[in-house]
Computed example of a mutant assay.
Amino acid sequence: MSQNILIVEDEQSLAQVLGEYLSQSGFSVSILNDGLGVIDWVQNNHVDLIILDLMLPGKNGLDIYRELRVFSNVPVVMATARIDEIDRLIGLELGADDYICKPYSPREVVVRVRNILHRSVDDVKVTAQVLSIDEKTMKVLVKGKEVSLTRAEFGLLLHFYQHKDQVFNREQLMSKIYSDNRVVTDRTIDSHIKNLRKKIQSVDGEVDCIQSIYGVGYKFAL
């Protein structure tokens, strides 16, 4: 089955040429020429990778990327017409999988797309070998061994796992696992994460799937 690539590019001729190169390389390609419909399209269609222009009519690429990361970990290649803009984007640590500067070589983009998708498959395989989560039964396996977690710990781990590229501050995590608006403190989240790490590392001391981001919060690290 071919993998699906979404090109979001307002220069229709450029999008068409890139789409033809990708199609000839065995990919299924869809093209959108403005930013307004991207989020709805992704929510209603399967896509394996997005090539996303920074400057788009309707909604710019940065806003689209941030909205995507609320619900999707699909790989994103950000495209811009300015090389200095790439430096700025990397400095923002948005987490895009790659950056390309226009005018670009369609052949090079195809190579980059292949590399990213290959890497993504490998990452999924590695994560699955280390960590397995069953949301229905609240069962967690670390390298095949079951780990007993509290409801709050499981909720945190599942949330991180489902949003692998995002960094969450303590307030966001509190609202996620305590939907009843009970009064809790930052230390409560820190304590849950400390206990979660301890339980996982009791199975394998080298597995630390939650990374602390100094001054910000936490993110998934596998």
Rank of each mutant, 00 (worst) to 15 (best):
M1F: 10
I7R: 10
Q12L: 10
L14Y: 11
L14Q: 15
A15I: 08
Q16V: 06
E20T: 10
S23V: 07
S23E: 15
S25W: 00
G26F: 15
G26E: 05
G26K: 09
I31Q: 08
G35C: 06
L36R: 10
L49V: 09
I51E: 04
L52H: 13
L52D: 07
L56E: 04
P57M: 10
N60A: 03
G61Y: 05
Y65T: 02
V70G: 06
S72K: 04
V74I: 14
V76P: 03
A79W: 04
T80S: 14
T80K: 08
D87I: 08
D87L: 13
R88W: 12
D98G: 01
Y99Q: 05
I100R: 04
Y104L: 14
P106V: 12
P106D: 06
V111W: 04
R114A: 13
N115F: 01
I116A: 03
R119C: 05
S120T: 14
V126W: 02
T127E: 14
V130R: 04
E135L: 07
K136S: 15
M138K: 14
G144E: 10
R151T: 15
R151C: 00
F154R: 06
L156R: 00
H159N: 14
F160V: 12
Y161C: 03
Q162T: 08
V167C: 08
F168H: 00
F168S: 06
K176T: 09
K176R: 13
D180K: 10
R187K: 13
I193D: 01
I193Y: 01
K198N: 11
K198D: 14
I200N: 02
V203H: 05
E206N: 13
F220W: 15
A221K: 09
